[in-house]
Amino acid sequence: MARGGGEWAIHKVVRGKWACSYKKTTLIVCCINIVVALYVLRSLYASLYIYSDRDSRLTVEYTPDQIRKMEESVRIRKSAEPVELIRLVKQFKKELSAEPSLGFELPESLKLKLTNEIIAELKSLPLKANVSEQRDFAERWCNEKLEQAKQLIREKGTLNSTTLLEEAVILVKALESDRTQLLEDIGLWIPSEIVNNEHDDKPEGEPDDLDEVLPGRPLPPECHAELHTDYDGAAVRWGLNYHKESAADCCQACLVQAKRAKPNEKKCNVWVYCPAEDGCHSPDIYEHRLGECWLKFAETPKLNFKNKYPESYRRSHPSAPIIVPWASGIVGAA
Rank of each mutant, 00 (worst) to 15 (best):
R15V: 08
F104C: 00
S132R: 09
P325Y: 09
G6Q: 15
V172F: 01
P64F: 03
I10D: 11
D232S: 14
E81S: 11
E133G: 03
G329E: 09
E265T: 03
L146H: 05
A298Y: 04
G157N: 15
Y286L: 00
H317L: 03
Q148G: 01
V172Y: 02
S319T: 15
D200N: 14
Y22G: 02
Q257T: 12
R75Q: 15
A298F: 08
L110E: 08
S43V: 11
I50V: 11
S43M: 07
E287G: 07
H317F: 09
T59R: 14
K78A: 14
L188R: 01
N130K: 05
D232N: 13
T162P: 07
K111E: 11
Y22R: 13
L171D: 02
L125A: 06
S47K: 12
L255E: 11
R154M: 06
C280L: 09
L146R: 10
P221L: 02
P321L: 05
S47N: 09
R42Y: 12
S328E: 07
K173G: 02
A80D: 15
D249F: 11
W294K: 09
E99W: 03
W238M: 01
L210C: 03
G4S: 14
L27K: 07
L58I: 02
I186P: 01
M1K: 10
E105K: 11
P220C: 06
N307A: 04
E299D: 15
A298H: 10
Y62I: 10
G332L: 05
A253I: 00
C280H: 01
P203G: 01
N143H: 09
A46F: 03
A225Q: 12
F297L: 01
L127S: 15
F305N: 11
P283A: 08
E212V: 04
W294F: 14
H11D: 12
S282R: 02
